[in-house]
């Protein structure tokens, strides 16, 4: 518990230093209207980053999340055109779960390395989305639906103009708090770290590793389906080629948050802090006039630095 607290405190410190540095260096950065409005865009990677934390903690990876999201978006759009929003929401989440279950079966029961499986399904699900939609976008949703991503909950009297708290933040908080409780307070969280630390030992300890892996990849798919709803509402359109490169942001959040890429150590609250750090980094660089094509260089660099660091910290811990 104490170790986790120290880690999160360190991340919080990094975040505060970043905010301070950007505020001094970048004109117009510290505007609460802008920052809160930008937070709308952090919800989709944030929702997926929570199950990704569990997956990475078992020394797995899921590269197919962005493709599952695109597929669920297309299914949502197509079903919506035939029926209504409620049915379409169910369809998107079911399709997401099925896509995750495919990953889960191949990884959990057929024991194929997750990197290979999800690399393949990344292409597979994206291809399915392209094929189903034939490249056409699906739009025309009611404003009640787009409100889940575009709406505001209430205004905060900070700054000269009131800043609005965007609706989707609520969904992100629910997923993060739920994820953090599962990780810290239930057997699922303990098993996750056990499997990541030593899978063979976990099997000998009578943990049903196959079933467990199947479960977390399926849950990840389901949450990709949920994220797809927010993503579709945010742009009021579902497209097959959407959210390309989203997996980089999601994995970066988890790794910056202190979860070891080789497994064994996980923190959902750390992932949330990682999300904020990457969000602030992107927003700050954006405001500083760095083009979006170059911003991913910084995200990539940050990912490598923290991954190396996590491994180093972990290796030192194991030797001790």
């Amino acid at each position: 518990m104490r170790k986790q607290f120290g880690h999160d405190a360190a991340l919080l410190l990094v975040l505060l230093i970043m905010v301070a540095a950007f505020s001094i260096k970048v004109e117009g950065f510290l505007d609460w209207f802008n920052i809160l409005d930008r937070a709308r865009y952090w919800v989709v990677p944030g929702i997926i980053a929570v199950p990704m934390t569990f997956i990475i903690a078992t020394s797995g990876i899921d590269l197919s999340v962005a493709s599952i999201l695109a597929l669920c978006g297309i299914v949502f759009g197509m079903v919506f055109q035939q029926t209504n929003v409620a049915v379409a929401i169910c369809a998107a989440v079911i399709v997401g779960s099925c896509a995750g279950a495919i990953n889960g079966i191949v990884i959990g029961y057929l024991r194929v390395p997750p990197l290979v499986v999800t690399l393949a399904t990344m292409a597979l699900f994206r291809g399915l989305a392209m094929g189903l939609s034939k490249g056409a976008p699906f739009g025309g949703y009611p404003s009640g639906f787009t409100w889940i991503s575009q709406g505001d909950l209430f205004s905060l009297p900070i700054g000269k103009t009131p800043a609005y708290v965007p609706t989707p933040i609520l969904a992100l908080l629910i997923v993060v708090i739920g994820g953090a409780l599962i990780m810290r307070r239930t057997r699922i969280g303990r098993y996750t770290e056990h499997i990541g630390e030593n899978e063979i030992a976990a099997r000998f300890a009578a943990i049903n590793v196959n079933w467990f892996k199947f479960g977390i990849y399926t849950a990840c798919g389901a949450l990709c389906g949920v994220a797809a709803l927010f993503h579709t509402a945010l742009y009021a359109t579902a497209k097959a080629d959407t959210a390309q490169g989203l997996e980089l942001d999601v994995i970066a959040c988890v790794v910056v948050g202190g979860t070891r890429i080789s497994g064994g150590r996980a923190s959902v609250t750390g992932t949330l802090l990682g999300l904020l750090i990457i969000g602030i980094l992107r927003y700050g660089l954006d405001m500083a006039g760095v083009k979006s094509q170059y911003i991913i260089i910084f995200v990539g660099a940050l990912l490598i630095v923290t991954a190396v660091f996590n491994e180093w910290v972990g290796a030192r811990g194991e030797r001790a």
Binding site: S23, I24, E27, G28, F29, L30, D31, W32, I158, G159, K160, T161
Partner: peptide, 8 residues
């Protein structure tokens, strides 16, 4: 400018 939120 940095210590207070600036208007647009």
């Amino acid at each position: 400018k940095s210590d207070a939120p600036t208007s647009t």
